[in-house]
Design a protein around this nucleic acid. Structure first.
Lengths: 216, 216
DNA sequence: CACCGTACTATACACTGTACGTTATGGATG
DNA sequence: CATCCATAACGTACAGTGTATAGTACGGTG
């Protein structure tokens, strides 16, 4: 009687299932018991392959980062930088849980290094010295992380009717005497909480500032 | 026998206690039962003043945002922008839980509007049109949020010996053949994970890009 | 003094991650 | 083929979590 079949699990299968659950219910509502149930297995079975929940988190993040395309070669370096930043944003939008995975855990893993290698290589080839290249890399990365996390957050807010109603309420309850500019610019502020245009606006600001100090 | 004394609690007292606990144990490890115990009260007593844990989160965030200083008047607008961004970063560094509070909950509340009013006013007075002012505000805010959250995260990592050791391990295990630039720039990357200089570098990039399209 | 809104308590439920000990199975070995 | 053992998966248990629900006793008001 095959009461406890073996070798039904594998790290890849667990990661895939975890990713599906995270995308369905959000990285917060995700639980080990949930993925174990989905696999038709007890919660403790996962500990054969991952030492902790955070360990599984890291594996999922690495799995997602592997989906990032390579940097396009034979293009001006500002276009290359734009491409790297845009593809990271797109990946985060396609997999909203990635934002939380990137923000809540330290960077580590093979695939993350690959991404850093691509961007750093572009900057070094453009002629930036090591320190400036590193500073620029960190600046670009944190900008993409912050802007896209914010965008995802606001989009999620807009989908939740209760939260969206409360947001409108508090917006409208603001005194036009106390906060004239906020009230005046409310439509523009609502329009600039996300989208390609908003992301590219900030990215272009950074690139424009960067081109001022271009070495060559 | 005063078995159940009344009026021992207040929203302000609860918020202050919650803030202390968050700063001591981090916003993640924070719990309603913890703050209730600290106040010598049952967990459910808090629900008299706050409808949920998230409600208390919002109150704590509002409490912290109230600590932000006003925008300095009579200064060139780039200096004003710098001042606003720097003071938000400083507040986040002084109260690391603020980063998580800002990232995990939608913006709302009186004090948050005050901050937006300050920055938006500066940009409008500088002559930017409504759309550009709104876009710039969002860009600056998300940059500060992303850069400072990252800085806090890395600093916390560095304090945790176990995590720090693992990070060094994975760094050193990277193949110099596969990731030449990452390995070459490892010292610079480690140096640019935070600090005033790194923050100002990105902020100045944004301001430089912004000055290119200054209206006046 | 009687009353009632309310500040607080007690209990309970459905969860969570994971430490510990047990069982049974598939592949390697004699 | 028979045996053995490392290990994959199990079950149980514990210390937590947020919060729904119901009950209790106090302080100000009639």
């Amino acid at each position: 009687m095959a009461r406890t079949p073996r070798n039904t699990l594998s790290p890849e299968l667990i990661v895939r299932t975890a990713l599906e659950l995270m995308e369905a219910k959000g990285a917060d509502a995700f639980s080990l018991r949930g993925v174990a149930a989905e696999l038709g297995v007890g919660p403790m079975a996962l500990y054969t392959y991952f030492r902790s929940k955070d360990d599984l988190y890291d594996a999922v993040r690495n799995h997602l980062m592997a989906l990032l395309p390579a940097v396009p070669s034979n293009a001006p370096w500002p276009d290359q930088v734009r491409a790297v930043c845009r593809s990271l944003r797109l990946l985060m939008l396609q997999h909203p849980c990635l934002a939380q995975l990137l923000a809540s855990r330290p960077l580590s893993g093979h695939e993350t290094a690959r991404v850093a290698e691509g961007l750093l290589g572009v900057l070094r080839n453009a002629g930036f010295d090591p320190e400036t290249a590193a500073r620029t890399h960190t600046t670009l990365f944190t900008y993409v992380l912050g802007a896209t996390s914010w965008e995802i957050q606001m989009a999620a807010e807009r989908r939740d009717p209760e939260a969206w109603r409360r947001l409108r309420m508090t917006m409208e309850s603001l005194s036009a005497r106390e906060f004239p500019t906020v009230v005046e610019l409310a439509p523009e502020l609502a329009r600039t909480t996300g989208g390609d245009e908003q992301f590219d606006y900030g990215l272009d600001l950074l690139l424009a500032g960067l081109q001022v100090r271009t070495p060559s």
